[in-house]
Structures are given as C-alpha cells and as structure tokens.
Design a binder for these strands. Structure first.
Lengths: 228, 228
DNA sequence: CCCGTATAATGAGGCAAATTCATTTTAAAT
DNA sequence: ATTTAAAATGAATTTGCCTCATTATACGGG
C-alpha cells in the first residue's frame, strides 16, 4: 500500500470534484438551476455526463455543493475582512460592507441559495457558520461592555442580515449600485440607541422618569425660594 | 352576436382558470414546485392534462399565477387591516403584524415566490403593489408631520420588509411561533429615534438628552443665584 | 516490460414528466 | 337539425435526469 500515490490520487479526485463544481457554478449562474443541463456542465468540465454522477449524487447535490462552497468562502472572507482590534461598531461595519459587496457581486449564486434549502428543511450548515461571524462580534461587544447588556442579539441578527439581503435585492432590481449609506444608516439604527438600558447608557440617554425627577427637584427649589 | 352568453361564457372561463389555479396552489403548497406534477394539478382541478395548457402557458406560468394572486390578496388584506385614523406608528404596527402573521401562515406560498422571479427579472407587479402600502403609510406620516422630514423611506422599507421576512424564516427554521416583540422592537428601532437628523426635526422633537441639558443649565442658574 | 486487478470514465438507453397537437366533444347560432 | 366555432381530451412527442453495462486507465507484482 503506497502512501504517496494514494495521496496523489486523493488529491486528483478532489481536484476533479472541484473542476466539476466550478463548471456547475458557471453554468448555474448563467442559466439558473432549471436552465442548466447536466450535459452542459459535463461539457464545461470536460467529462462525460455519467462522470458527474460519480462525484455528485444528483443535480440537487451539485447545487448544494456550489452554494455550500460559496457560503464557506464568504465566511473565510468575512473573517479576513474584520479587524480584531477594531471596536464593535467598526467590526459590524466591516462585516456589513463585506457582506453587501459580496452578495451583490455574486448575486446569481446567492439567488441559487434559495433552491438549495428545499422546503423549510434546515438551513445549510455553511450558512449557519457564516451567521456565527455576526454573533461572535456581538458577543464580544457585550463582553467588552460596548453594547447594552440586554442587547437582543437574535433579533438584531435578523435586522442585520434581513435588511442587507433585502437592500441587495432592491438594488439589483433597480439596477443601482452599492451605496455605503445603506450600511451606515443600518448600523446607526442598530446601535444608535438602545431602548433597553444599562447605567452607562442611561447617563447618555436620560429617561423621561429621570427628567421628571429633575423637574420636580427644580420645582421644589423654586417653591422653597418663593416662600422665603 | 349575443351579449349575455358571451358574458356568461367569459365568466365560465375565468371560473375555470380560477379552479385550476386553486388546484395548482394546493398541489404546489403540498409538494413544492418540483414535486408537483401537472397531471396531479389537472386531476385536482378535474380537467385533462392538456386543458391546463389552454389556461396557462406552462408550469412556470401557473406558478406566477398562484404567487401573483397571493400577493394581490395580501395587499387587499393589508389595506383592510390598517385603521386610516390611527397614527403612523400604529399603522405601521398593524401592517407589520398583519404581514408577519400572513407570511408565517402561508409560508409555503411565500417560499414559492422565490421561484416565481426567475433570475433577476423584474419583481412581480403584485409585490410592488404590496410594498406600496408601506410607502403610503410613510408618506402620510411625513405629510402629517409625524415623521422627520428627511426620513429615508426607501431605506426604511428595506429594513421593514427585510427584517420581517428574515425573522419569519428564522422562526420557521427553529419551529418557533410568532412573538409580537419582534414587531415592537423593529418599530422602536425604526421610529424610536432619528439618526439622520435635520435641525428642524430636532427642534420639534427634542431628545431627552437635549431636555436634560436644558434642565442642567437651569439648575446651574438656580445655583448661581442662590450663591449670590 | 507485461499482466491482472481495481478504480475511474464513458455514453447509450431507460424513464418520468412537461408540452404539443390531431381528434373528439360540447356549445351556440341559424 | 345542421353548421361552425370554441373547448377539451389524452396519446404521442420531447426533453433532460440518471443508471448501468461496457470500456479505459492506473498501478503493483512477477
């Protein structure tokens, strides 16, 4: 049992699987899932039709591969795009910008994602991992005290990704290009104030009750003075 | 050329088209687009397979019909759910609640929507109409002076629908049910403060912080006077 | 270097489902 | 009752995914 050849062979096989995936991505992106024929993909990968099925169970599996790889690369890219030394707000902005540009750039593949989650089955693992990048930033923000303690991460996650995804669709629909104001506005919405409130935050943003107390105190002082 | 029969005939035809659409919706919802066979739909509508093609060009067209009708009904329902006398914040909350419940309720049809917009083609007209309901509320809010003059409606629209759609997906994914806190939190984000900020709005709507500053200044004056 | 075996690749053929269309049925008008 | 047009039918065609019997290639031992 030779070691080197085995390795080489394994590598070769992975290389071929990757070649087929490249071809699939190309054809899917150009023609959409339904429009793409396995025979097209096979031709683009320079293999016979049957060979595709040695590497991927079926057309759907091929799609899952393409989409999974995309999100997995997105995770890598996002981690690279985030400066670990930056504060929470900046990290979020880095993630948001990176996210927006990537999904606009590769909009066709993102669209294919919808086809890869057949009927309310669980999401792709790779998507969950990607979303974890956001969670980590937020968690760190909490730990560092840069966010109010009761920040609802789960809900803000939906706001973050939901808004960006929808904005991307809108931009594509109208043929407009990316404008960073979307990101900055979103972040100022998300971080600009927290209706929930720790002490530090309270000082910057007094509640109505605080105001009332102060008014009452002043009123009292005035009353005292007048009665003198 | 008889008038009555013509009418009757036209009605009959529309009724049959509608019957087929009902069947299609039913089968699509149960089996998904790919899982649905035209023969199933034909059987459910009690017509022959070929007859379906007299009313709809092809399977895709059938899907477009189903999805279009859904959004169109959603628009009607939304308009009915909104109290024209309520203020902007309440109207938005009504729309948000209605939206969330509807799309959670009919999640299968909503999922089909993704299949109805093949590859970055323009959105369905019915979706655009639906989104118009939001725009109208916001515009009215501006006119009534209930919103800052420079409210970025377009961006808030993306926040609104993007967040709700993403939240709905998340809920379905986790098998959780609808919790109205999603809506109230979203609205307090959207309306709770104006991060964009013209002077004009600030004057009309001083922040608590502004009030606190003014109070502190008064307090200071009182102190000064006393010390004299 | 040749052979045998295991691994990989091939593409013709089976099959399922969408779509077409020649034929039949139904409805309307005279 | 007959003619004509509209509507419906389902068998036949087409298309494209996927299987599998066959062929080619790689590799280790003699």
């Amino acid at each position: 049992m030779p070691a080197t050849p085995r390795n080489t062979s394994r590598e070769r096989i992975e290389a071929k699987a990757s070649t087929i995936l490249d071809a699939a991505e190309h054809i899917f992106s150009g023609a959409g899932f339904d429009g793409a024929k396995i025979s097209d993909i096979a031709r683009a990968a320079s293999v016979a039709e049957g060979t595709v099925y040695l590497y991927y169970k079926n057309k759907q599996d091929l799609l899952t591969g393409v989409v999974g790889r995309f999100w997995s690369q997105l995770t890598q890219g996002a981690e690279a795009a985030i400066d670990p030394k930056a504060d929470t707000a900046h990290q979020l902005e880095q993630l948001a910008s990176y996210h927006m540009q990537s999904i606009l750039d590769q909009f066709e593949v993102v669209s294919l994602s919808y086809r890869a989650r057949p009927q309310q089955e669980q999401d792709l693992d790779q998507v969950r991992e990607y979303v974890g990048v956001f969670d980590r930033i937020m968690q760190q923000g909490l730990d560092r005290g840069e966010l109010p303690e009761d920040t609802p991460i789960d809900q803000l996650r939906d706001v973050f990704f939901g808004t960006l995804e929808f904005s991307a669709r809108t931009l594509k629909l109208r043929g407009r290009s990316y404008d960073r104001s979307i990101v900055t506005n979103l972040l100022s919405l998300m971080l600009g104030h927290s209706q929930s409130n720790p002490e530090a935050f309270k000082q910057k943003n007094p509640s109505n009750r605080d105001l009332m107390q102060m008014l009452e105190s002043i009123q009292e002082q005035l009353d005292n003075r007048r009665s003198n």
